[in-house]
Amino acid sequence: MNPVQNIVLVTIILSFALLEIFSGRHRNFRATRDDTKLELFMFVALIAVSQPLIFAVTGKLGSLLMPEQRGAWAHLPWWAMTAILLVGDDMTQYWWHRASHTPLLWPLHRAHHTAHYMSIRITYRNNFFYYLMMPGLWISGVLIYLGFGTVYLVYIVVKLTVILGAHSAVRWDEPLYRYRWLHPLAWVVERTFSTPATHWAHHALTNDDGIGHYKGNFGNLLFVWDMLFGTAKITRRYPAQVGLQDDLVYGKERWFVEMFYPLLRSRRTHSALAPGGRAVAQEEVDGDLARGLR
């Protein structure tokens, strides 16, 4: 990765981290040691292993299979490159995220939802193989080979800023809903980009409060995809709790199982990360709660 990009990204992350600390919202994290290890190791794995590996492989394959195409699209205007990246990276990530909420891929994404707090620290909390298999990263690697390098650096900085903001404990969109004169701006912003209100709803502990929507609001940079493909829910409110109900009932998975499944498997009762396991239905959790299994 470009050193300048790394400096900019670290600056953005530190800025959000300082906002969470100075606002006092970090006191609500209730993170365990396993939470911290999973978040730290996954962040390092993404920036030091997964993304560099994918870009190196796509670059090498490009050189072998289409050497004459290196930089072939570099003449395109920046807005055309941006449009292609929004489709090739952000829209495909929407579909990858949506597919990851199906039984087949849920074990690779489940770790992102096991945090019972919202913070920038959970932004890249996922299974190790989740990013290695993400189509958008592979497409981005090909586009960089074709000449999108400089525009991609700007694009990814903007995207990271939006994604970090959507996960941040500091709900930057609250003033947009509080002041009536800002409501027209809020209407545009919340239908264009991922915001804390829409993305926190995706992480909600339950849908029963009328706010939670963990079967939708899949967008990363753009919320437009949810609007376009019928998975959007906008309430301008925030769920009281986030996380997974089955973790509260059966106990949390170990960090290394969440990170390295299927190489490592869970021994927990009712686990999607166990041999032959499956996602635990909400009705099962409710039934065990009623029987007093805690």
Rank of each mutant, 00 (worst) to 15 (best):
H75I: 01
E190L: 04
I12T: 09
A83C: 02
R268K: 15
G251I: 01
T150I: 12
I163F: 08
V157I: 15
V8E: 10
H26F: 12
D35T: 10
W187T: 08
H202N: 03
G24F: 07
S168E: 11
V57M: 08
I12P: 10
Y155D: 13
H116S: 04
Y131M: 14
H101F: 06
Y131Q: 15
L9Y: 04
D90T: 05
L108Y: 05
W106E: 04
V189H: 05
P135G: 04
T150Y: 07
M259T: 08
H26L: 09
D226K: 15
T231V: 11
S194G: 04
A272W: 01
R237S: 14
G219Q: 10
E258K: 14
L244G: 00
A166N: 06
G243P: 11
H167Y: 04
K159W: 13
A186H: 07
K159V: 14
W78N: 09
D247A: 12
W255F: 14
L64M: 13
Y261I: 14
G216E: 04
N220W: 04
T192S: 11
N28G: 02
H97L: 09
V44M: 06
K37S: 05
D89L: 09
A274N: 01
T82S: 11
Q69L: 12
T92D: 01
M42T: 11
K233G: 00
W79E: 07
L105V: 12
A201S: 15
S63K: 15
I54R: 01
S119Q: 06
Y94S: 05
A74L: 06
L146T: 13
W181F: 15
L273Q: 05
L108A: 06
W172M: 11
D208N: 03
G230C: 10
R27Y: 09
I84H: 07
T161L: 15
Y130R: 10
V57K: 10
A201E: 09
W187L: 09
F41H: 10
V285K: 00
E20P: 06
V257H: 07
P175C: 14
L263E: 11
F148N: 04
N6L: 10
F22I: 12
I84W: 03
I47A: 03
W138Y: 07
V162I: 15
G147H: 08
I144E: 10
N2S: 13
F229R: 04
R33D: 00
T123S: 01
G141D: 05
